[in-house]
């Protein structure tokens, strides 16, 4: 029977949303390949094992708890060695990870160690016979590739938010997985700089409020922040023009060379909609655009567009959103 191994990513002692999505994707894959079990590796600092029941809630049959002080930070080599060793000894059909900062590093490492084929940034998957088939957006989301992967095991990383984590409660069996130490020269994490607290990550937020040059000056981003606050748990993004000018950090850039996002709601403020930017957000479920130029390309993709001065409209919109949410 074909079991699937999942990397249940953690950070700061918490299981990340992308880990639950990976468990859901792994469940789908296990069902498609003959109904095997889903085994989740929960690696983190001592004490992380307490979080194991959450993975059971989302459908993991077995949680393999791997505790090590090194895993308080992203100990890439040791995590890769631990995952690869378990994948090998457990005879799994597939290893599933999230295509997050951690997963995009670990996936190729595990695949190379196992000499396994790998597909990354996957938005859907299925299986027939000995072949696993996945969908993968390529060419900066402008083309969808359907890839056939032969061989076993295979490594698959899933795009954040592409699979909705679904509860499928199980009393997961909990086992201990001894961490495998890194061999040879390794990368040392000297420090981790936490970003602004209180906002979700762009890849995980269901609402993103994003600003461009139309905001006219960096200080006007506080109007964008205020709208994000009004929505509650919204993330704040920016265009490449704005990050290149240093108004916002590079890590906030949404677009072909920055983050690619698909939230439920994307609000584009003073953004003209260059191809570079559209490539990063055109798969958002609902798009709102406010821009003074009614010919701006952003209006071609916006479900709801308002033509006008974003600086003038923003405070009005922020107040209206706040009122609407309080009315609930």
């Amino acid at each position: 029977m074909a079991n699937v191994l999942v990397f249940a990513e953690t950070r700061n002692g918490e299981i990340r949303k992308v880990a639950l999505e990976a468990v859901t994707a792994a469940r789908k894959l296990a069902d498609a390949t003959g109904g095997g079990e889903v085994h989740a590796v929960l690696a983190g600092p001592p004490g992380i094992g307490e979080k194991a029941p959450l993975l059971g809630t989302y459908g993991a049959d077995v949680v393999l708890v791997s505790e090590s002080a090194d895993f308080a930070r992203f100990a890439r080599e040791s995590l890769a060695a631990t995952m690869a060793e378990r994948a090998r000894s457990g005879g799994y059909r597939a290893v599933v990870l999230g295509f997050s900062a951690q997963g995009r590093d670990l996936g190729p490492r595990v695949a190379a160690r196992l000499d396994a084929p790998i597909a990354t940034d996957v938005i859907d998957l299925s299986a027939a016979g000995d072949t696993i088939t996945v969908k993968h957006p390529a060419y900066a989301n402008k083309v969808i590739m359907t890839l056939a992967i032969s061989g076993s095991p295979v490594v698959i990383s899933v795009r954040p938010s592409a699979f909705t984590a679904v509860q499928a409660p199980k009393a997961a069996r909990v086992d201990t997985l001894v961490p495998v130490a890194a061999q040879g020269a390794t990368v040392t994490v000297v420090d981790v700089k936490e970003g602004a607290k209180g906002r979700p990550d762009l890849g995980e937020a269901s609402i993103i409020v994003s600003g461009g040059r139309g905001l006219k000056a960096p200080e006007n981003f506080k109007l964008v922040e205020a709208l994000a606050d009004a929505f509650g748990n919204a993330a704040v993004g920016a265009t490449r023009a704005v990050t290149d000018d240093g108004w916002r950090p590079h890590s906030d850039q949404i677009g072909q060379t920055g983050r690619q996002v698909s939230p439920d709601l994307y609000v584009a403020l003073g953004i003209s909609g260059a191809i570079q930017h559209l490539a990063g957000m055109r798969t958002s479920r609902t798009i709102v655009a406010i821009n003074k130029d009614k010919e701006a390309p952003i209006f071609k993709v916006a479900d709801y567009g308002i033509v006008g001065d974003v600086i003038e409209i923003l405070p009005v919109l922020t107040a209206a959103v706040k009122a609407a949410r309080e009315g609930h």
Partner: peptide, 27 residues
């Protein structure tokens, strides 16, 4: 061991819609 079975363009978004001008369109 990984091969392209198919390539396709993503579904087009429905054409954009401008709902109004200025603050008056906010409600």
């Amino acid at each position: 061991r990984v091969t392209i079975q198919k390539m396709e363009l993503p579904p087009e978004r429905p054409a954009g819609r401008i709902i109004g001008e200025g603050s008056a369109a906010v409600p």
